[in-house]
Write a protein that binds this DNA or RNA. Structure first.
Length: 212
DNA sequence: ATCCCGAGGG
DNA sequence: CCCTCTGGAT
């Protein structure tokens, strides 16, 4: 089966498994989702969700975070890893939102990716989940792995993987296919021990039993 | 290609 | 011990 034939089958079966997809990162608005997504780099969402209530309690929005010190933000986000970079980027992003975007997050890929620490993956998450704008498909560690195993791409480069995925799914599915691949990746097809015998995509998966 | 970096699982 | 977790900048 070709990738373009497989894609709708995958979407349909995952849609049956996940009738409604809710973002795993707790947030109340676009700014909080952006911050949570930045913190989610190489970190589990469960840990991010432990940190963000503290973070947003102390600095509710970009106006407050822009005035925070590097050290106090580092302390709060420390357990998410990469804490120096994340603290620096979040404060700098807050400053830029206040000074350059009038205190409101912009709604385009081009503008969002001018924020330090924000590239296509984070921007795609914010655009599709907070603004309902589908400029692309968010490609993270799970999407990378699932796209490869399902034969949607031969690349390990997130930018090329996104280009490979986009023509396989109609635009209105771009936000959902990300959620589906992330959840399915966690529950059935994790990096280490994929549960191929229990997988409802097993009959159509090019890499069934390979686990790579 | 390399660095940033904590925490949990196996 | 090694691998992995909704990455991004140099």
């Amino acid at each position: 089966m070709t990738a373009s034939e497989l894609a709708p089958v995958v979407f349909e079966r995952l849609r049956a498994r996940y009738p409604v997809t809710v973002p795993a990162l707790d947030h109340r608005d676009a700014w909080e989702l952006l911050v949570a997504t930045v913190l989610a780099a190489q970190c589990t969402d469960a840990r991010v969700n432990q940190v963000t209530p503290v973070l947003f309690g102390r600095w509710p929005g970009p106006a407050q975070l822009a005035r925070a010190t590097q050290e106090e933000v580092e302390e709060v986000v420390r357990s998410t890893g990469f804490f120096r970079n994340k603290a620096k980027n979040l404060i700098a992003s807050a400053v830029r939102v206040m000074e350059h975007f009038g205190g409101e997050l912009p709604r385009t890929m081009a503008e969002l990716t001018t924020l330090p620490g924000v590239a296509r993956k984070t921007a795609n998450i914010v655009l599709s989940n907070a603004f309902g704008v589908h400029e692309g498909i968010a490609v993270d560690t799970h999407v990378t792995r699932l796209a490869y195993r399902l034969g949607f791409t031969n690349s390990d480069d997130p930018v090329k993987i996104e280009r490979d995925l986009m023509p396989l799914f109609p635009r209105e599915q771009w936000g959902e296919i990300n959620h589906m691949l992330v959840y399915f990746g966690r529950e059935v097809c994790p990096a280490r021990k994929p549960r191929c015998p229990a997988c409802e995509l097993g009959d159509v998966c090019p890499k069934r039993g390979v686990g790579k």
